[in-house]
C-alpha cells in the first residue's frame, strides 16, 4: 500500500539560493513525526511545498499515491492535508466560533452544520469558553489553540503544525501536548515543526532533522537526537544565537 504522504527528491530554489535540497521521506497513516533544525534550515519552506503555498522546483509529492505537487493550497486542503501557520493571524471581523466555523465550511452542507462542527472542535481544544470573544484579542497561547482548532475543523487526515508551541509558557506547552495527544487518538496523522524539543520527545516517536535545506537525519527520536551531526547543527545555532 502507498504511504499516506511521500516526498520524493523535492527541491526548492529561490534564485540562486537552494532552500530545500532533494528531500525525500514518507509518512505512514497514524504517525507523529517531529521536524527539527536550526533557523533557516528550510522547515517552513518544506511545509509550504507540501501544502501548495510554494511550487517545488524539482521532485514529486504524493498523497495516498496521487501526485499533488504544484496543486493550489485550497485543493490540497480539501484533499485532507491542512497546516497551521507559524505566525497566527485569526480572521479579523470574526469571533472565535466564527473563525473555526469558516474552517468547517468546505466539508459541511450548511452553515449550521459547520457551526456544530466548530463547537465540537472548540470543546476538544478547550476554547469553548471563549467562543464569543473577538479572535484578534486573544492572548498568544489561546491564539495558537485557535489556530489548531481551525486546522482540526477541516477534518484533516494529515496535519502540519508549524511551531504551535512557540511563545507558550511551560504550562501552556503541557496543555497543548495533551490536546495533541487527543488529536492523535482521533486518527489524525501529525507532522510538527518545533524549536522546543520537549514536545517532540513526548509526542513523536520519529524525527526528521533538516539543516541548510538538506535532510540530515530521519529515524527514532532518541537515536536521532544523539547523532553527532544533529548535536552539531544545534550547537552551531546555539553559538550564533549567543
Amino acid at each position: 500500500m502507498n504511504p499516506l504522504l511521500s516526498v520524493h527528491e523535492v527541491s526548492k530554489q529561490f534564485g540562486g539560493l537552494t532552500a530545500v535540497r532533494r528531500v525525500s521521506f514518507a509518512v505512514e497513516e497514524g504517525e507523529m513525526v517531529g521536524i527539527i533544525g536550526p533557523n533557516g534550515a528550510g522547515k517552513t519552506t518544506l511545509f509550504h511545498l507540501i501544502t501548495g503555498f510554494l511550487k517545488p522546483s524539482e521532485g514529486d509529492i504524493r498523497f495516498r499515491g496521487r501526485s499533488i505537487a504544484g496543486w493550489k493550497p485550497y485543493r490540497i486542503s480539501r484533499l485532507g492535508i491542512t497546516r497551521t501557520f507559524q505566525i497566527v493571524k485569526p480572521f479579523a471581523h470574526l469571533n472565535v466560533l466564527q473563525n473555526v466555523t469558516v474552517a468547517a465550511l468546505e466539508r459541511s452542507a450548511t452553515l449550521r452544520e459547520a457551526t456544530r462542527v466548530a463547537e465540537e472542535v472548540l470543546e476538544v481544544v478547550g476554547l469553548a469558553g471563549y467562543r464569543d470573544h473577538a479572535a484578534v484579542d486573544l492572548p498568544i497561547g489561546l491564539k495558537k489553540k485557535l489556530e489548531l482548532a481551525k486546522a482540526l475543523a477541516t477534518r484533516p487526515a494529515l496535519l502540519f503544525l508549524d511551531e504551535v508551541m512557540g511563545g507558550l509558557t511551560p504550562g501552556e506547552v503541557r496543555d497543548m501536548i495533551e490536546v495533541l495527544k487527543q488529536v492523535r487518538e482521533r486518527g489524525v496523522t501529525l507532522c510538527m515543526i518545533e524549536h522546543v524539543l520537549k514536545p517532540i520527545f513526548e509526542l513523536c516517536p520519529r524525527t526528521l532533522v533538516l539543516q541548510q535545506g538538506e535532510l540530515i537525519a530521519d529515524g527514532p527520536t532518541e537515536e536521532v537526537m544523539r547523532r553527532a551531526e544533529v548535536v552539531e547543527a544545534y550547537l552551531g545555532e546555539a553559538i550564533s544565537d549567543a
Binding site: 493550489k72 485550497y74 486542503s77 491542512t82 501557520f85 470574526l94 465550511l105 452553515l111 459547520a114
Partner: peptide, 23 residues
Amino acid sequence: SKFGYRLIAVRGGEAAAQALGIN
C-alpha cells in the same frame, strides 16, 4: 451564509483561508 463567511475570511487573511480549503 456560507459564501459570506468565506468572503469575510478571505478579507481577514487570504493565505489562512486557502489553507482551510477556500478557493
